[in-house]
Design a protein around this nucleic acid. Sequence first.
DNA 1: CCCCAGTCCTGCGGGC
DNA 2: TGCCCGCAGGACTGGG
Length: 278
Amino acid sequence: MPELPEVETMRRGIASVAGRRIERAAVIRRASVRPLTVWPSASALQRRLRGARIEAVERLGKRVILALEGGDRLVFEPRMTGLVLLTDPPTAKHLRARLTLSGKGKAELLFWDRRGLGTLSLYGPDEFAERLGPDRIGPDAWGIPASVLRDRLDASRRAVKVALLDQRALAGVGNIYACEALHVARLAPERPCCSLTRAEWRRLAKALDGVLSEAVRYEGSTLGDGTYRNALNQDGSYQAHHRVYARAGEDCPRCGDAVVVRTVLGQRATFACPRCQG
DNA sequence: CCCCAGTCCTGCGGGC
DNA sequence: TGCCCGCAGGACTGGG
């Protein structure tokens, strides 16, 4: 499930398309799978993308963005199983869109999505600001200063783990990295935000930065039941370094005494060490 | 404000 | 062996 480190890895993997032009864009529909959600429409998207120059490849939280000449932005939102690829996709069946790029050598940028929960959107500047502006997507979680993290969350009575998943509060954290960061910070997931001390907010900000940096270095997490791959269809390797996520019943890697426990918080599986994160 | 249930979707694995 | 069901959850919506 692409979260910040996986999406950052996708972004880096396709960064070389900057400077190329989109010769042709095709949204692919198949009778056997539900069509991808495309904004504003497949035909308008295909028309508006034709000939557009890619100025930059960016990331906003869990989205990959192609900034285009003229101010349009093409937004890839992978959600659970979406991939942005420069090579052949895992299956032909779930290929959702193809951008043929001009420039030196052949290049194709593909959007593949097994479950089809992902989206592909083309926004003008005003639309982009309205839908993905700072009031909708909070500051990036990677390297977020402790003071910013605290200011945005400390009035809330919500469980800290639930709050970390709120993309309006901070962008990029999903279920895996929320669990991992809270374990590193030695904070119980169910702690209300308003109960955290300044020292605990500092610990959490540092843990977020550490875990996200580490995960980016390992090119994200490819879980057994997941489909995440980088732009070259290769697995990430951070799953081997998870401390608690999907490790219920295993010894806590920190204290070695207690066992990692799975609970449900905000309708999401949550993993923590009851001793370290008391 | 906050919480919860439901929605989208498909592959996989547990249980019988 | 085969089938069914539940689970996985990011983002969003609607109701309480």
